[in-house]
Design a protein around this nucleic acid. Sequence first.
DNA 1: CGACGTGTAAC
DNA 2: CCTTTTACACGTCG
Length: 360
Amino acid sequence: MARIILHVDLDSFYASVEENRDNKIRGKPIVICVYSGRNDNSGAVSTSNYKARELGIKAGMPIILAKRIAKGKDVVFLPVDMEYYREVSERIMDLLEEESNIIEQVSIDEAYLDVTKSSEGNWDKAIQIANKIKDKIKSQENLTVSIGIASNKFVAKMASDFQKPNGLTLVKEEEKIRFLQNLKVSKLHGIGEKTTKLLSEIGIETARDLSLYELKELEEVFGKNKAKLLHDKSLGIDDSPVEPREKKQLSRIGTLKDDTNDKDIIYQKLLELSKDMDQRIIKNNVSFRTVSLITIDTELKTQTKSETIPQTKDIQKVISISKRLLEDYLEENPDKKLRRVGIRISNLEFSRSQKTLDEF
DNA sequence: CGACGTGTAAC
DNA sequence: CCTTTTACACGTCG
């Protein structure tokens, strides 16, 4: 059965939410920052609105660089407020759920909807649904979205990216090859820096190049699975279903004020992170079996250590195990200093809420 | 096979 | 100059 999938993407979400929050900044370039706390301007840009992007201020950029660009101009810098964005996001996801109950939230500002049923397999009806979504989100939250409509998730995602902000792009099954062909491989969702470089080394620059490349030859570079995946992408093939995701891990990471290998200082940070993690454990009513310590050294090299235990919800386990893993790390790497440190729990089990039990 | 660790990618 | 959080694939080891 041919499917119709929507990919809904909120436009410069954090920046737009902040713009709605404070009329004084409306219309200005806005930059949302993750401050790391090492000094006044350490950290990175999380999102910027289109006005700021025109100036060249983009996500991922060091704050200090963004400020240099903004110098002398009326640019607004704000810290991220995840808690608030999450509230807004939840309301919007509820709106989306009214249009289809087959929905997959990919991140705080993105979701896929399978509207095959609600559109009766009709592209025009799918467009109507997309417009309805746009109208609702505009009227209720004063936010714009970009929507892609296609026969699978991958092409829908590529389509939503095609016209931004406030876009609506339809790519029918018969059009997808033409739509993708001339794109650089780096533009294809799921192909990042490393893969792009490897592809370039064997003369592949565009989706067309990739689609024409012999699968057998691709396998020699990427292995069977990845090669197939890449080849499918080049042709817009994706059979993966739209399905709700269950969280598989929860992590919390932080930057140390100074690079250090001082056990006590790092342990203090772990305690801080654990406090936060505990709130999330309680809120999500989740138990876990694996605790990991994440370390990032001064060279920005990430390492993880983990231990699996009998199922628990006890934050003390996170604290004691991460402490021990830290001691192991420090012993194994006596000459290294840490820049950032984090904890993660995985092997999660979400308990049925008590209410559900009562109903029986 | 499960546990553990690394790499890649995206947000 | 370099944030945060999550997913997933894959290799290795016992």
